[in-house]
Design a binder for these strands. Sequence first.
RNA 1: GGGAUAUUAGCCAAGAUGGUUAAGGCCAGAGUCUGCAAAACUCUUAUCAUUGGUUCAAAUCCAAUAUAUCCCU
Length: 293
Amino acid sequence: MKEIIVIVGPTGIGKTKLSIELAKKLNAEIINGDSVSVYKELNIGSAKPTLSEREGIPHHLLDLRNIEEDYSVYNYQIDVRNLINELNKKNKRIIIVGGTGLYIKAALYDYNFTKETIKNNYNELNIDELVNRIRKYNIELKKEDLNNRRRLVRILNKLDNNEEITNNKDKLLYNIKVIGLTTDRNILYDRINKRVDLMIDNGLFNEVSNLKDKYKNSRILNSAIGYKEFYNYFYNNKSKEEVINEIKRNSRRFAKRQYTFFKHQFNTTWFEVDFNNFNNTVNEVYNYLKKQP
RNA sequence: GGGAUAUUAGCCAAGAUGGUUAAGGCCAGAGUCUGCAAAACUCUUAUCAUUGGUUCAAAUCCAAUAUAUCCCU
């Protein structure tokens, strides 16, 4: 079976476009690797490829949930693995594209999730108490996690439920090739800023307006960039300007974090994008893939 | 020409009466990563305008210089 092509990189760099061009050349199907595009109602702000942009290439794992439903790495892992099996049977080439590092990593590497979600939030414990309880199990914590309540609660749940804290994060289950797209930071930031302006022009405001009343019931609306920033516009009279600037800033920060994830968590081969002639980039990647055994 | 006030990191800004390693915020950068991941968390950034002086000790006091704003002639 042929290796799975994984396209990663910061937001706004052209992953979608590359994936479609490559899919056309390779007769491949595309699996979405983006945690927000999973939601039906989030289109403009999620930069989900439109039907016409998809150019007839089958796209999987888009529009799976509505914004009041939840979806997580756990679900994604199952969905992707099933899809891979299916597409392999059809002898289809697979391209996974997206910016959600953990989702992609958990699907392709040997991450073990149990069906169980969190049983106990340990609301009665403060951070130090959480840390102490975890240490009783003789578990070493990284200094980065010492104030990370979310992560501490997760770890303690596993420990208290006798779940193994496995760490097979480097054990690959599939044959993959990770393509990373990159460019100069300033150019990227400029593109991100312009893309946000474009989203506004394309009606992001309307898209979010229609979902306004659902903020209370939707986890994703309160955490996805391009959506969460509107909350203060609707409910705390923040200006439209401010919202736009916040979206830009959050997108830039996100892009930076994506770089560090893809740099360190995957064995990524990076390609400098040629924005003046994107075909050059497509061909460069295509030739690279062809050369590989 | 005369006078007043100001000058602390890329930006904003706290630093009574001089006294251990110069708050904090923003922006930015570098990281962490097995269940909210577009999330959560960690780390990093100052010859205190310059020069000289007083003092055991100066961002803090004194003088000169530079720059900025305001006022007077």
